[in-house]
Measured scan of single mutants.
Amino acid sequence: ESETFDVELTKNVQGLGITIAGYIGDKKLEPSGIFVKSITKSSAVEHDGRIQIGDQIIAVDGTNLQGFTNQQAVEVLRHTGQTVLLTLMRRG
């Protein structure tokens, strides 16, 4: 069981404050995608409180990250504006 949710964030001096990890899993058993690996102290993400380590980032400002490499996803996140809309999925 999984839930998908949107989080809109405004960057602070730390930026968004997440590091991400790309993961290619076994299609049947484990998900592939871009996941939140860590959250920086005092960052926008930590202050917001809704995003957790292990959440999958589905889209950034409407750009679907399906099939993106870790590096491609980093580039998408790097080129966002001051306000960012993240679409995430959390597995229950």
Rank of each mutant, 00 (worst) to 15 (best):
E1C: 10
E1L: 09
E1F: 14
S2H: 08
S2K: 14
S2W: 10
S2D: 10
E3S: 11
E3M: 13
E3K: 15
T4I: 15
T4M: 10
D6S: 14
D6L: 09
E8A: 10
E8S: 12
L9V: 13
L9Y: 06
L9P: 00
L9S: 02
K11V: 05
N12Y: 05
N12D: 13
N12W: 05
V13Q: 15
V13N: 14
V13W: 11
V13F: 11
V13D: 14
L16D: 02
L16A: 04
L16N: 03
G17E: 06
G17F: 03
G17C: 03
G17S: 03
I18V: 09
I18T: 03
T19V: 09
T19M: 08
T19D: 12
I20S: 04
I20M: 07
I20L: 11
I20W: 09
I20N: 01
I20V: 15
G22N: 15
G22I: 06
Y23C: 12
Y23K: 15
Y23R: 14
I24R: 14
I24V: 14
I24K: 14
I24T: 14
I24N: 14
I24Y: 12
G25R: 10
G25N: 12
D26M: 10
D26H: 13
K27L: 09
K27D: 15
K27P: 14
K27E: 12
K28S: 12
K28G: 13
L29E: 13
L29P: 15
L29W: 13
S32G: 13
G33C: 04
G33S: 05
I34A: 04
I34R: 03
F35H: 07
V36G: 01
K37R: 09
K37Q: 13
S38A: 14
I39A: 00
T40H: 13
T40I: 11
K41A: 12
K41E: 10
K41G: 07
K41R: 10
K41T: 09
S42E: 15
S42F: 12
S42I: 04
S43C: 09
S43W: 04
A44N: 07
A44P: 13
A44R: 07
V45D: 07
V45L: 08
E46R: 08
E46Q: 11
E46W: 11
E46D: 13
H47Q: 13
H47P: 07
D48A: 10
G49E: 06
G49D: 08
I51T: 01
I51N: 03
I51L: 06
I53V: 14
G54E: 01
G54R: 02
G54K: 03
D55F: 00
D55M: 01
D55K: 00
D55H: 00
Q56F: 06
Q56M: 04
Q56Y: 03
Q56R: 10
Q56I: 06
I57R: 01
I58C: 06
A59I: 02
A59E: 07
A59N: 04
V60S: 00
D61S: 02
D61C: 02
D61I: 01
G62E: 04
G62W: 02
T63Y: 09
T63W: 03
N64A: 11
N64W: 06
N64Q: 10
N64S: 14
Q66S: 12
Q66G: 10
Q66E: 14
Q66P: 00
Q66C: 11
G67S: 10
G67E: 11
F68T: 07
F68S: 08
F68E: 05
F68R: 09
F68D: 02
F68M: 11
F68Q: 07
T69V: 02
T69S: 12
T69A: 06
N70R: 14
Q71G: 10
Q71E: 13
Q72S: 06
A73L: 03
A73R: 04
A73F: 07
A73D: 01
E75D: 13
E75N: 10
E75C: 06
E75R: 08
V76Q: 09
V76T: 10
L77K: 01
L77R: 02
L77Q: 02
L77G: 01
R78C: 06
R78K: 13
T80C: 09
T80W: 02
T80V: 05
T80S: 10
T80N: 00
T80K: 04
G81H: 06
G81Y: 03
G81M: 02
Q82A: 10
Q82S: 12
T83N: 11
V84D: 00
V84M: 05
V84P: 02
L85G: 09
L85F: 08
L86V: 05
L86Q: 04
L88C: 12
L88R: 01
M89E: 10
M89Y: 13
M89K: 14
R90A: 03
R90H: 05
R90K: 05
R90C: 01
R91D: 09
R91H: 13
G92P: 14
G92D: 11
